[in-house]
């Protein structure tokens, strides 16, 4: 999880990824950020994230992204 937060902070500085729970719903991250985050996550965790996984529920918080990564592993 620590590694995930570090990656997210590098992709989108200035967002409190540890506590935010509505990253998509509140418009804190947008399509370009999502694609950057996805490519970083695929490299860092060796998972294959497809367009079907791009739902707000999977990207609204660091925790939901972590759950998605665990599911895809």
């Amino acid at each position: 999880m620590e590694k995930l937060i570090q990656i997210l902070t590098e992709c989108c500085p200035g967002i409190d990824f540890a506590n935010e729970t509505a990253l998509i719903d509140d418009g804190l991250i947008e399509s370009l950020d999502i694609v950057t985050i996805v490519s970083e996550l695929m490299d860092a965790f060796g998972v294959d994230i497809t367009v079907d996984d791009l739902t707000p529920e999977n990207f609204n918080s660091a925790e939901s992204m972590w759950d998605m990564i665990q599911r895809l592993k």
């Binding site: 694609v35 695929m42 994230i49 367009v51």
Partner: peptide, 28 residues
């Protein structure tokens, strides 16, 4: 945008650019 960005050719291009171009330009 999403299907294109996450397609295999774009994923390969992304990996190549991150390895060969320094800084943010390589990442995006």
């Amino acid at each position: 945008f999403y299907p294109l960005s996450l397609s295999k050719p774009f994923a390969r291009l992304g990996r190549w650019s991150r390895g060969h171009i320094k800084g943010k330009a390589g990442k995006i």
